[in-house]
């Protein structure tokens, strides 16, 4: 069994933290994993993508082949669409619905339409949820919670253990906020 995910977003939105948590959970669940990311120039408000491959057998390529991703998990709606060529036929798009407008002429209506016509798409306004629940820095964990029901190769408990482990050095309060964010996203789907 394998599970390929494309994580997408804009530099600074915290997609690499999501990647770190899923990767950590996968290793602890005894799975093979490859997680490719690009550092450097793209961090400065540019498009950021990380390919995450989980499997119970050997994984050779660090990069996903086209049409192979079971999920596109995105912190930003237009960024979710950018990687559609990687989505498998029955793959899910799980995305924040809040546009990140740092470019002129952001095609907001077109993005909405292009998302709506996909067969399996879950849009969730994680930014508003995070703000309303006083957890402005945990929008990414709400998104991970929303994705957790679909990442069948890992249990939500695996992911929560990793949240506790990864955020552990930042203190108990931050761990609790992020776990709460995760549960909130999980309950939304």
């Amino acid at each position: 069994m394998k599970y390929d995910i494309i994580l997408a977003g804009v530099g600074g939105q915290g997609i690499l933290s999501i990647a770190t948590i899923i990767a950590d959970a996968a290793v602890n669940a005894g799975l093979q994993i490859k997680q490719a990311e690009v550092h450097g120039m793209s961090q400065r408000g540019g498009e950021v993508e990380s390919g995450l491959r989980l499997s119970d057998t050997a994984i050779y390529s660090d990069l996903l082949p086209a049409g192979s991703a079971e999920m596109i998990l995105s912190m930003e709606p237009m960024e979710a669409l950018r990687y559609l060529p990687f989505l498998s036929r029955d793959g899910y798009v799980i995305t924040s619905t809040a546009p990140f407008r740092n470019i002129p002429d952001y095609p907001e209506d077109a993005v909405k339409k292009d998302l709506e016509i996909l067969p399996h798409v879950v849009g969730i306004d994680i930014e508003t949820l995070a703000r309303e629940n006083s957890m402005p820095k945990s929008a990414n964990m709400i998104l991970l919670g929303a994705a957790a029901r679909h990442i069948g190769i890992l249990t939500p408990e695996h992911l929560k253990e990793s949240i506790a482990r990864i955020f552990g050095r930042k203190g108990r309060q931050i761990v609790e906020t992020n776990l709460r964010a995760f549960d909130m996203g999980y309950a939304k789907i």
Partner: peptide, 14 residues
């Protein structure tokens, strides 16, 4: 299975 929609614009670093 899915093409990249035509309306997607690049988001260069800044």
């Amino acid at each position: 299975f899915y093409a990249k929609p035509q309306n997607i614009v690049p988001r260069p670093p800044a």
